[in-house]
Simulated scan of single mutants.
Amino acid sequence: MLLKKIYEEYKQDVFKYLVSLTHDTSLSEDLVSETFLGALKSLHKFKGESSIKTWLFSIARNKWYEYLRKEKYNISIDDLAYNYILSESDLDDVLIKRELYNKIINLLKSEPPRTEDIILMRIKGYSYFEIGKKHDISESSARVIDYRTKKKIKEILVKEGIVYE
């Protein structure tokens, strides 16, 4: 009964998060099912150290990684830099070089704390509305900060020859 309630409350959020990663609604629908099956199998391991939504997004991200590994997809560095900064082990799972990961993290840490937090919140799947509410800024401002920071990091990576457009 508990998982049914969780499913009803978070299925749309998980779906939207997966669409933002995959850009494929059909695949995202499949991954939503796999995410909640994974959640059912690991519900006993959930200790409440993060929100249920964050926990589900983590499972969803891992299900997407599994799909990519199985299908041997190549992911653009831009997508990886934007979506996968959050977890070093996740990045290793999709074969991102440690050097690139460290560079992206260092670039993000060089940003003002509010900007860094906004980007990390976005990566975790928070909406611009939620980010704006936390930081007492408009939804539009959260979007602009996210966009400019992503663009800045990518430009630095391209300039240094770490990433190619």
Results as ranks from 00 to 15, higher is better:
His23Trp: 04
His23Ser: 14
Asp24Gln: 06
Thr25Arg: 12
Thr25Asp: 14
Ser26Val: 15
Glu29Ser: 05
Leu31Asn: 14
Glu34Phe: 00
Glu34Gly: 04
Thr35Met: 08
Leu37Gly: 13
Leu37His: 12
Ala39Val: 08
Ala39Pro: 11
Ala39Ser: 09
Lys41Ala: 04
Ser42Val: 07
His44Trp: 11
Lys45Ile: 04
Lys45Thr: 12
Phe46Trp: 07
Phe46Val: 10
Phe46Asn: 12
Lys47Gln: 14
Gly48Phe: 02
Gly48Arg: 04
Gly48Gln: 06
Gly48Thr: 05
Ser50Arg: 09
Thr54Ala: 07
Phe57Cys: 07
Phe57Pro: 00
Phe57Glu: 13
Ile59Met: 07
Ala60Val: 05
Ala60Gln: 07
Arg61Ala: 01
Asn62Met: 06
Asn62Ala: 02
Trp64His: 11
Glu66Tyr: 03
Glu66Lys: 05
Tyr67His: 13
Arg69Gly: 11
Lys70Asn: 08
Lys70Tyr: 10
Glu71Leu: 00
Glu71Tyr: 03
Asn74Glu: 15
Ser76Arg: 09
Ser76Ile: 06
Ser76Asn: 05
Asp79His: 03
Ala81Trp: 01
Tyr82Val: 10
Asn83Ile: 00
Asn83Ser: 09
Tyr84Asp: 09
Tyr84Ala: 02
Tyr84Ser: 06
Ile85Cys: 07
Ile85Lys: 04
Leu86Cys: 03
Ser87Lys: 09
Ser87Leu: 01
Asp90Ala: 03
Asp90Phe: 01
Leu91Pro: 01
Val94Ile: 15
Leu95Trp: 05
Leu95Ser: 14
Ile96Asp: 11
Lys97Met: 03
Lys97Phe: 00
Lys97Glu: 15
Lys97Gln: 14
Glu99Cys: 02
Leu100Asp: 15
Tyr101Phe: 11
Tyr101Met: 03
Tyr101Asp: 09
Tyr101Cys: 02
Asn102Val: 08
Lys103Asn: 09
Lys103Gln: 13
Ile104Met: 13
Asn106Glu: 10
Asn106Trp: 02
Leu107Trp: 02
Leu108Arg: 07
Leu108Tyr: 06
Leu108His: 05
Leu108Cys: 04
Ser110Thr: 11
Pro112Ala: 10
Thr115Asp: 14
Thr115Glu: 12
Asp117Phe: 00
Ile118Gln: 10
Ile119Phe: 08
Ile119Gly: 06
Ile119Pro: 01
Leu120Ser: 07
Met121Glu: 11
Arg122Gln: 10
Tyr126Gly: 01
Ser127Met: 07
Phe129Lys: 15
Gly132Arg: 04
Lys133Arg: 13
Lys134Thr: 14
His135Pro: 00
Asp136Lys: 13
Asp136Ala: 10
Ile137Gly: 03
Ser138Tyr: 09
Glu139Lys: 13
Ser141Gly: 01
Ser141Asp: 13
Arg143Ser: 13
Arg143Lys: 13
Tyr147Gly: 12
Arg148Leu: 07
